[in-house]
Design a protein around this nucleic acid. Structure first.
Length: 800
DNA sequence: GAGTTTGAAACT
DNA sequence: CAGTTTCAAACTC
């Protein structure tokens, strides 16, 4: 499975891609010890054959089938008895540990290099489905990042006293050990994903699970701290057990890596973004946090899916997490999760695809709302710098839409919701006919090298973001921390039954929407984008629900975008472009240059959208070839002793004197610096022209603000007056008919008052005089209304 | 709104 | 790297 198609990948700059591969091949069927092909090299550096699908079929005896890792569709299932611990390692060491000594064969001790132990065995509930899409790549320092071969992925369940299922995706052997041991401080950190599927949200999370990477074990504590050792990620999902059509209780675990949306674009869908919660990232070394989900999640990745990752302005990886409950009527369903990341933004596409009719694949689970812990946090283990993520459940309309974030760059997010499954579960893209999915394999584990695009933009401080909760049942949570790259997890739809639990999701990790689920998808968005998301027409933030845990909302550092706070940029929606010839695929286009999709623009023949991903990626590549820093902010911090903000390249103005918006320095409200090559520059500190212009600009801005405030105030006053006065139209009474004060009348009155205020201001009238003029005008307006009403009343009495 | 000006981006 | 062209935004009327 390709994360990025070879064609597209070749277009991406090498420096932004890094590969981390874990490949697990088929595991022996009927084997308690499941061993994939150790050291399986990634077929391609750019290829992710990293779908990890673990399908556990819980029979009445809670038999668990799992652990088939392969790119092929013929993987067989291993049978695991109830309460067994399943340990998978990509290194070929997949160990099935029976809970009881006689329950099964003991796994190879060497396999559990990174997985130390599970404190308490858990029974595997039926009908559990989890899909984890794992993207393991250090996007920030790809060149320095050795390939992660020791990644470990732990999947466990927290059901009714059962036993956890643990998947360890680690490459054992001298190679992995040497790599890990020799990892320098810059080496990307391995990440753990622990997915816990529990029958109840309030159940105790897998606190006893300790996952220790090989690197962590080899390194001293101080080294681990420096390296920010692999992070344990725990996801607890409360599930609901439900019988499959065949009558079998099925627990499905699917762990996949991001999929490329190519070939799936036609089927992709984007749902409105609904606020969810902000999940703080655990600092390195902190115990994993657990989030309980209220529903059973069935997730399945499409093997052919790809993920296109383009340089991010922000080094953080985007994580899309989609957890949806599957409709009972659609036992067979698969979800394709195309992910595209371009221009520093990460485009996430999640698409459902019908799975082949395999009993093992058939999973029927109805999402059941369950009590969820009010405060849940998801720690996102970023490499080097932890990152918060915004996970947005995707809403129903099955289409793909970009999410625009004005003022910020690289915010592309493709949201594809898992559509409600039909009886046949036909919602998938025809292009994603991967055998692995169509052929129902109980367990498919694929981990492959991922060549990730690395954002070259420094991390930005986060602004305070308070996503609006969507449904009352959902528990959106906002958790902030001092960490940069905070992100929110936002439910896109009111899906009471869904409460995905995501903890410590690694950057780039994608959790696919449950196939046939309740149309729920999750995408991770940087917190700084939330503001735009709330404003974007593409994203509907439901305000019907309030956070159940308002106290969890914490103040976040404000993001700085080109020197402007996120709130500033967010409050000023980006202007729509008017490109006609560039197809919005060149830096002429502000949308493209800002890493945004065109949205509500006036452009013609626009290719800056999801429908032209290939062209867009090529354009991005071309831009980066010309200028590797093309998508970096132009306004950065200047040299020491200079202004804090300056243009990275400097302007080249010749005729504008750098006092018009033609000048990028002036436009950014910064003065020209020594690196500018402008002629006749007047944009410097002592410039009288500049001061004059600034003064005028400030005065104009103040005037606008005052007018706006006055208008708002007067409108409110008029509205209040009208609402407090009971309309009374009596046939013969003396009361005036306030019903004549219509909206139009009120607006006209406001206009009159504003006009009066402007006149007072233009004539430099003192404030007291101005207020008097306005009040007098208001009185005249009232009199006119009264007179008109009285006249109309008289006319009515005559005519009627 | 049409036309002009401007400078960054793209191209040679 | 420099000169030229293209492009879209800013600006003017």
């Amino acid at each position: 499975m390709n994360v990025v198609s070879p064609e597209l990948n070749s277009l991406l700059p090498d420096e932004i891609m890094d590969t981390e591969a874990i490949v697990m091949d088929e595991l022996p069927a009927e084997s308690t010890v499941l061993t994939g092909q150790a050291e399986a090299p990634a077929p391609m550096e750019t290829e992710l054959s990293e779908m990890v699908a673990l399908n556990v079929v819980a029979m009445p005896t809670q038999r668990t089938q799992a652990l088939t890792t392969s790119t092929t569709a013929d993987s067989t299932l291993g049978s695991i008895s109830t309460g067994t611990q399943l340990l998978l390692t990509s290194s070929g060491a997949a160990v099935h540990r029976p809970a009881t000594p006689s329950a099964g064969k003991s796994g190879s001790p060497g396999v559990s290099s990174g997985l130390q132990k599970l404190s308490t065995p858990f029974a595997i509930p039926a009908n559990h489905q989890i899909i984890l899409n794992k993207v393991s790549a250090d996007t920030r320092s790809p060149a320095q990042a050795p390939k992660q071969e020791g990644q470990k992925l732990v999947v466990t369940t927290l059901p009714k006293g059962g036993q956890p299922i643990m998947l360890t995706l680690s490459h054992t052997g001298a190679k992995a050990a040497s790599v890990q041991g020799a990892a320098d401080a810059k080496a990307p950190l391995q990440q753990f994903q622990v997915v816990t599927i529990g029958g109840r949200a309030d159940r105790k999370p897998v606190m006893g699970v300790q996952a220790v990477s090989t690197t962590s074990q080899l390194l001293a504590p101080s080294q681990q701290s420096a390296l920010q050792a692999q992070q344990l990620k725990t996801v607890q999902i409360a599930k609901k057990t439900q019988a499959s059509p065949s009558g079998q209780m099925i627990t499905k675990f699917i762990i996949t890596k991001p999929l490329n949306s190519k070939g799936l674009s036609g089927q992709t869908s984007v749902s409105p973004v609904i606020p969810g919660r902000v999940l703080p990232q655990n600092p390195p070394g902190t115990p994993p946090q657990t989030i309980a989900s209220s529903e059973t999640a069935t997730l399945q990745s499409m093997p052919s899916s790809k993920i296109a990752i383009s340089p991010l302005k922000s080094p953080s990886k985007l994580t899309v997490v989609s957890v949806a409950s599957q409709a009972p009527s659609s036992p067979q369903k698969s979800v394709t999760l195309p992910i595209n990341v371009a221009l520093g933004q990460q485009i996430l596409a999640v698409q459902q695809q019908p799975a082949a009719s395999s009993p093992a694949k058939v999973v029927s689970s109805s999402s059941t709302p369950q009590t969820i812990k009010p405060v849940q946090t998801v720690a996102v283990g970023g490499v080097g710098t932890p990152q918060y993520k915004t996970i947005i459940p995707l809403a129903t309309p099955p289409n793909v839409q970009p999410i625009q974030v004005p003022g910020s760059r690289f915010h592309y997010v493709r949201l594809v919701t898992a559509t409600t499954s039909s009886g046949t579960g036909q919602t998938g893209s025809p292009n994603t006919n991967s055998p692995a999915i169509q052929t129902a394999k109980p367990v498919v584990v694929n981990t492959a090298a991922v060549r990730m695009s690395v954002p070259l933009v420094p991390a930005q401080p986060m602004k305070q973001v308070v996503p609006k909760p969507l449904s009352s049942s959902s528990t959106p949570q906002v958790v902030t921390s001092s960490q940069s790259q905070q992100r929110l997890i936002m439910p896109a739809t009111a899906l009471p039954q869904i409460q995905p639990n995501l903890t410590n999701l690694p950057p780039g990790t994608v959790l696919a929407p449950a196939p046939g689920g309740a149309n729920v998808g999750y995408t991770v968005l940087p917190a700084q984008y939330v503001t735009q998301l709330q404003q974007s027409p593409f994203v509907t933030l439901a305000s019907s629900t309030s956070f159940s845990t308002p106290t969890s909302v914490q103040t976040q550092a404000r993001l700085s975008l080109n020197g402007l706070s996120t709130s500033d940029s967010a409050s000023r929606p980006r202007k729509p472009c008017n490109c006609t010839k560039s197809q919005c695929l060149k830096l002429y286009c502000d949308c493209f240059a800002n890493g945004e999709f065109c949205n509500n623009c006036n452009c013609t023949n626009c290719f800056n959208n999801l429908e032209h991903e290939t062209e867009r990626l090529k354009a991005i590549k071309a831009c980066l070839d010309r200028n590797p820093e093309a998508f970096k902010p132009k306004i950065g911090k200047g040299k020491e002793g200079e202004s804090d903000r300056r243009h990275s390249k400097g302007c080249n103005c010749k005729r504008s004197g750098c006092l018009k918006n033609y000048c990028e320095c002036y436009e950014a409200k910064i003065m020209c610096s020594s690196i500018c090559k402008c002629v006749g520059c007047k944009n410097f500190e002592e410039s009288l022209e500049r001061k004059s212009l600034m003064h005028l600009a400030d005065a104009a801005e103040v005037r606008v603000q005052q007018q706006t405030a006055a208008k708002t105030k007067l409108s409110f006053q008029i509205s209040d007056l009208l609402t407090r006065t009971t309309p009374a139209v009596t046939s013969g009474g003396g009361k005036l008919p306030y019903t004549f004060v219509t909206k139009e009348v009120a607006e006209a009155t406001c206009d009159c008052l504003i006009e009066q205020a402007e006149q007072a201001e233009l004539t430099n009238q003192p404030q007291a005089v101005a207020e008097r003029m306005i009040l007098e005008e208001f009185g005249r307006c009232l009199m006119r209304i009264i007179n008109s009403a009285g006249k109309a009343k008289a006319d009515c009495s005559i005519n009627c």
